[in-house]
């Protein structure tokens, strides 16, 4: 186990290290705010989601399945599915952060995301582990996500008839970029094909957002049980 500290300088180092990522997160937040408005969430609801959930991909999938009445099962599945990787991230951090008090560890984990997890692992590679680094780098990214949401939600209302500009397709386009970014090669083919087939079948049979649930579950199980 490493010596672990949780100090002011670690927090400051984290904020500085996380700052460059705000340039990428802020536009994503704005896009989320705009698309949330199109999906029927008002500014309050979109902001509340960004403040409490703080997960771009999960929130984008939530917009895609959003409807009236609120499809709770699909929303919760979206939250779980797009954040399942955090279970692995957290597991990997355990040996390094185990010296922290539970309050500091579990408080900092709320702010964990792809960027600051990678930053922390990189920083830890040089032997310096400070628990406050995860908190600081996460906090600055969190703030830019929330601010972006408010900006996008505010301005988004100005855009009339978004279909004319193809803006309704922005969400789908983002899913494609996410998919390409996550792609790991041949081992992803079987899960993806299974998910697509299951989603199309269930969508045709049941409609609503059940296709997302069925495809996500069946596809990922194929991934879990593929021969290695």
């Amino acid at each position: 186990m490493h010596q672990i500290s949780f100090i002011w300088s670690g927090l400051r180092t984290g904020v500085v290290a996380g700052a460059p990522f705000t340039a990428g997160v802020l536009p994503y937040g704005i896009a989320f705010g705009v698309l949330a408005g199109q999906a029927g969430l008002d500014l309050q609801a979109a902001t509340a989601m960004s403040v409490t959930v703080f997960s771009g991909s999960a929130q984008f999938v939530a917009l895609q399945v959003w409807s009236d009445p609120i499809p709770l099962a699909a929303l919760l599945f979206a939250a779980f599915a797009m954040n399942a990787r955090y279970v692995l991230y957290g597991a990997m951090l355990r040996p390094h952060l185990a010296g922290l008090s539970p309050a500091r560890a579990y408080g900092s984990l709320f702010f964990m995301n792809d960027a600051n997890w990678a930053l922390l692992v990189k920083q830890g590679g040089s032997g310096r582990w400070d628990g406050a680094f995860l908190f600081g780098s996460g906090l600055i990214i969190y703030l830019s996500w929330v601010i972006g949401t408010v900006l996008g939600g505010g301005f988004g209302r100005i855009i009339a008839a978004p279909e004319t500009f193809g803006l309704d397709f922005l969400l789908i386009a983002f899913f494609v970029t996410l998919l390409v970014g996550l792609w790991r090669g041949r081992r992803d083919v079987a899960p993806l094909v299974t998910a697509v087939a299951a989603a199309l079948a269930v969508d045709w049979l049941a409609g609503g957002s059940w296709g997302v649930l069925a495809g996500g579950l069946l596809g990922s199980l194929v991934g879990a049980f593929r021969p290695r």
């Binding site: 599915a81 399942a84 998919l179 998910a195 697509v196 299951a198 989603a199 069925a214 069946l218 596809g219």
Partner: peptide, 14 residues
């Protein structure tokens, strides 16, 4: 856990 995001995005897109 590693396979869930890919499968879910496929299920959203299809």
């Amino acid at each position: 856990l590693e396979s869930i995001p890919i499968a879910t995005l496929g299920a959203v897109l299809a």
